[in-house]
Design a protein around this nucleic acid. Structure first.
Length: 471
DNA sequence: GCGTATGATTAAGA
DNA sequence: TCTTAATCATACGC
């Protein structure tokens, strides 16, 4: 019972006489000078305090009964007044310690970040905005990769949901606990002086405790978002090779538009679409316009840097384009003949077998022969010959305006004539270009490489992409 | 493991 | 805003 003794001592130092106008003190003034009354009252107060101090040792029912008894005790108002006075004294120090704290900068940072990431704040568009921001921050290439974006958004939504669920739980628990404490304090205020300010102060303390728990939640959420974001960015940065078909499509376009390998926006879109159709780079991955742009950017610079290295490739694709074109022309001619049985054969007839080249070497040889004339009997049946010729010219590095060029050109003219007699020809991506044979100029720039053309040949069907020019 | 190929990123410039 | 040139980082083939 040391505590009780201490309180008794404290009470002994308090002016128990009091004044009716101050603190509601109702204790009557002491009588006489012998202090007998005072001692008696002190004894009463001692009893009350003893009961209060032992109240927790009782059972609930006993305590309840004792509490009722205390409330009805004749000395209770006096004790209440004394406690008020003590409170008045100690309250100052509490008030001094209870200064308004500035907002925690770390908490503010966490809040701002959660808001920026779309975890906190309004749900609509938050995740998408964050995903877009993340994409923009890491360059444009993956900016339109909707699949990865949706994946990112889905995971962000998941984090958001968990965060809000936990937040609600915390808030609920906080409110419940606050209500409980407030009720307790109100109840206690019947026996001891508790001002509304003190209740408010206690509520603030509870809220602070809970907000520190909330901060941990916010911190964990931020960490989760950071991990997700880094994974998302890493995944986008992770390089995956395009499929063979996609590379072929891009190469075909590049080498058939060597005079101006700057596909227009529409052409890029078409190429992206075509590549995506034929490409399966893992589950649901497609080639985007940005990737097409990257590819052409890389290709141009690497081609320019080392033309010699790309010569074989150029030959390959040139031959391939020639073969494709030949197929198309043959088909067109056949079609023309079928449609007009009376039309005489224009002297341009070839069998498919002639173009059944089974290896790159054969194609290469064929192409070389086409330009050197060593094969002799080979006609050049391609509407794309201009670019092919240009590519050979640029690849060889020599001025190529001699007999070979003339031969080829005359063959091209003949071919154009044939084609013009038939239905409009288009092979889609394989350029059907009549062009001026330009390529890299002395400065290393692409001659005639004007603003990327967006001309769509009128002869091109919906499946075709783009052509530098048209026949 | 190493060299090369290749898609992506970045800074500078027009 | 697009391109170039340089560079990074990873895939791929040997």
């Amino acid at each position: 019972m040391d505590e009780q003794a201490r309180i008794m001592q404290t009470l002994g130092g308090v002016n128990l006489s009091g004044h009716p106008g101050q603190g509601g003190m109702t204790l009557p003034p002491p009588h006489g000078h012998d202090g007998t009354d005072v001692d008696g009252r002190k004894q009463d107060i001692g009893d009350i305090l003893h009961q209060i101090m032992t109240i927790t040792d009782q059972s609930l029912d006993e305590a309840q009964a004792k509490k009722h008894g205390l409330n009805c005790h004749r000395m209770k108002p006096a004790l209440f007044s004394v406690l008020c006075e003590i409170k008045e004294k100690t309250g100052l120090s509490i008030r001094g310690a209870q200064e308004e704290e500035p907002p925690d900068p770390q908490l503010m940072r966490l809040d701002n970040m959660l808001l920026a990431e779309g975890v906190a704040g309004p749900e609509k568009g938050g995740g998408a905005a964050a995903a877009a921001a993340a994409a923009a921050a890491s360059g444009g290439a993956a900016g339109d990769n909707s699949i990865e974006h949706s994946d990112y958004r889905a995971k962000l939504t998941q984090i958001r949901q968990i965060y809000h669920t936990e937040l609600e739980k915390y808030e609920q628990a906080c409110n419940e606990f606050t209500t409980h404490v407030m009720n307790l304090l109100r109840e206690q205020s019947r026996t001891r002086p508790i001002s509304p300010k003190e209740i408010e102060r206690m509520v603030n303390i509870i809220h602070r405790k809970f907000s520190s728990i909330q901060m941990q939640l916010k911190q964990s959420t931020c960490e989760a978002v950071m991990i997700l974001r880094s994974r998302f960015l890493d995944a986008r940065r992770k390089r995956r090779n395009f499929s063979k078909q996609a590379t072929e499509i891009l190469n075909e376009y590049f080498y058939s538009h060597l005079s101006n390998p700057y596909p227009s926006e529409e052409a890029k879109e078409e190429l992206a679409k075509k590549c995506s159709i034929t490409v399966s780079q893992g589950v649901g991955t497609t080639i985007t316009v940005s990737q097409v742009s990257n590819w052409f950017g890389n290709k141009r610079i690497r081609y320019k840097k080392n033309i010699g290295k790309f010569q074989e490739e150029a030959n390959l694709y040139a031959a391939k384009t020639a073969v494709n074109a030949a197929h198309a022309v043959a088909a067109a001619v056949q079609n023309s003949q079928t449609n007009s049985p009376t039309t005489p054969n224009s002297g341009f007839q070839m069998k498919d077998e002639e173009f059944q080249l089974d290896s790159a070497e054969n194609k290469n040889t064929l192409l070389t022969n086409m330009f050197t004339g060593s094969s002799g009997s080979y006609s050049l049946p391609t509407p794309n010959t201009g670019d092919l010729f240009m590519s050979m010219q640029s690849l060889s590095g020599d001025s190529y305006q001699g007999q070979v060029g003339a031969n080829v050109q005359s063959q091209v003219d003949t071919l154009r004539h044939v084609i013009s007699q038939t239905a409009g020809y288009s092979d889609g991506l394989g350029g059907n270009a009549m062009y001026s044979p330009h390529s890299l100029n002395a400065n290393g720039g692409w001659q005639d490489a004007t603003t990327p053309s967006s001309i769509i040949s009128p002869t091109e069907g919906p499946g075709s992409v783009h052509s530098d020019t048209s026949i």
